[in-house]
Simulated assay, not measured.
Amino acid sequence: MAVCSICGKGVKTGMQVSHSHIRTKRTWKPNLQSVKAVVNGSPKRITVCTRCLRSGKVQRAI
């Protein structure tokens, strides 16, 4: 499932509404990246959203 390991951001659902007001279901998916980060002192591959990467909540491993 598409969920950020840091903040828990996941898929949102809602309705797509056309000009004639025909409603169909749609989803909004977060921009998730698979990165190698330091978790509990050891490098580990985790899935993180770009907002957490950009704000510095994740320390990337080399």
Rank of each mutant, 00 (worst) to 15 (best):
I6A: 00
A37S: 05
V39A: 08
K57W: 05
N31P: 00
M15Y: 13
K44N: 10
Q16G: 13
M15W: 14
G14N: 09
V3Y: 13
K57N: 14
K9T: 06
A61K: 05
G56M: 08
T50E: 09
I22R: 15
V38Y: 02
V39K: 15
A37H: 07
H19I: 12
I46S: 05
G56F: 08
S18L: 02
C52E: 03
W28H: 06
C4Q: 04
M1I: 15
R26L: 01
K57T: 07
W28I: 12
V58T: 01
G56N: 13
K29L: 15
L32T: 09
V48M: 03
T24G: 10
K9Y: 03
K36R: 13
A61F: 03
A61C: 06
T47S: 15
C49R: 03
K44E: 10
Q33C: 07
I46E: 04
L53C: 06
K9L: 09
I6G: 01
S42Y: 08
G41H: 02
I62N: 06
T27K: 15
Q16M: 09
A2S: 13
T27Q: 13
V17G: 04
A2M: 14
S34M: 07
C7I: 12
A2F: 13
V17S: 08
M15H: 10
T13L: 00
I6V: 15
A61W: 04
H21V: 03
H19P: 11
L53N: 02
A2Y: 11
N40I: 00
Q59H: 11
P30R: 03
K36N: 09
G56D: 12
T50A: 12
Q33D: 14
S34F: 02
I22T: 11
Q16C: 10
C49Q: 07
I22V: 12
V17M: 11
I46N: 05
A2P: 14
Q16V: 05
C52R: 08
A2N: 08
C4K: 06
H21A: 10
V3H: 08
S5Y: 07
W28E: 13
I6R: 01
T24N: 14
C52K: 08
R45C: 04
R26H: 12
H19V: 15
S18Q: 06
K25P: 05
S55Y: 01
V11Y: 14
S18E: 03
T27R: 15
V48S: 04
A37N: 05
P30N: 07
P43T: 09
T13E: 15
T27F: 15
V58A: 08
C52P: 02
C49L: 06
K57D: 11
K12A: 08
K36I: 06
C49V: 09
H21F: 07
P43W: 09
T27P: 00
S55L: 12
R51G: 04
Q16K: 09
T13V: 06
V48A: 01
R23C: 02
S42G: 05
S5M: 06
A37P: 08
I6H: 00
V38Q: 03
K57S: 14
A2E: 06
V35F: 03
V11M: 14
Q59S: 00
C7K: 02
V17C: 08
R26A: 13
T50V: 09
R23N: 01
H19G: 13
S55H: 07
R51K: 14
Q33K: 05
C7D: 13
